[in-house]
């Protein structure tokens, strides 16, 4: 046990922890973006609310979710430890700094990561916490006529405060009652400064991952010329362009929709 402890307490071991937790968070981003594309479906939030309900009630996903929260915390704590050690390694700074030919991202991972941590706190506080631990999220009732496939939607107030989800049938009509996270999102994304926070955070995410993703592989020691270009390509296009753009599109589209109402 002490040998493992020694390994992960070494400078390289700490970097390995950063790389492993970071890559796990990267994988999560793909799943998170994929699921949240349901926000672009014009069905009064039906698919999205059902998806949110599924995520919070399917035990394997709940287990993975707690691993995810742990990864965020470990990634942040180790980043703090490493950054502090790195600062101490140069007690007296240089008087002159030239613009060195290295990327902005790699020099500012700590700053970008801090922006993201603040964002995660705001983001989870507004949606995850309110959804799971408060009664401030409303409910929707979706009545679908199974013959015509027509859905009508109404607000719904449950009898008990801890009501989560129900499915029942009334003749040819399917009645689904579910927590309405979608309306919470519509409300949040109609505030301009809230949208701005999201967009800025996604810019930070882009810069964080353009260095972070490929840097993780470098930490593992995987730099062979055969596959280095592959993860550099994925790191740049998927993690620094497509994913941040996809996430930023959600608040922007909802904000524009709120203006038209």
């Amino acid at each position: 046990m002490s040998e493992l402890k020694q390994t992960f307490n070494s400078s390289l071991g700490k970097k390995l922890i950063m790389a492993l937790t970071g890559l796990f968070l990267c994988v999560f981003l793909i799943v998170h973006l994929g699921g949240n594309l349901l926000l672009f479906k014009h069905d009064n939030g039906y698919s999205f609310n059902m998806y949110a309900n599924f995520l919070t009630h399917f035990p394997p996903i709940e287990v993975i979710a707690y691993i995810l929260y742990l990864c965020i915390i470990v990634h942040a704590i180790y980043a703090y430890i490493l950054t502090t050690n790195n600062r101490h390694a140069r007690p007296v700074d240089y008087a002159v700094h030239t613009k060195s030919p290295v990327s902005f991202s790699s020099k500012n991972m700590g700053l970008l990561g801090s922006i993201l941590l603040v964002f995660i706190v705001i983001h989870m506080g507004d949606f995850w916490y309110k959804y799971k631990f408060t009664h401030s999220v409303g409910y929707k009732e979706y009545r679908t006529n199974l013959l015509t496939n027509q859905t009508t939607v109404t607000d719904f107030t449950p009898q008990t405060a801890d009501f989560e989800h129900s499915q029942s049938f009334d003749g040819d009509t399917e009645i689904i009652r579910v927590k309405d996270l979608h309306s919470r999102i519509v409300a949040s994304f109609s505030i301009w400064w809230y949208v701005l926070i999201y967009v800025i955070s996604m810019v930070a995410l882009s810069f964080h991952l353009v260095h972070g993703f490929q840097s993780a592989f470098h930490t593992f020691g995987w730099v062979h010329r055969k596959y280095k270009p592959i993860y550099e390509f994925i790191g740049t296009w998927l993690f620094a362009v497509i994913i941040p753009l996809g996430f930023a599109a959600m608040p922007i589209v909802y904000f524009i929709q709120s203006l038209n109402k």
Binding site: P101, S106, T219
Partner: peptide
């Protein structure tokens, strides 16, 4: 008491 690498590449450049 040296710091850790952040794969920035300033060393390689200099």
């Amino acid at each position: 008491g040296f710091g850790s690498c952040t794969n920035t590449g300033a060393c390689e450049a200099e």
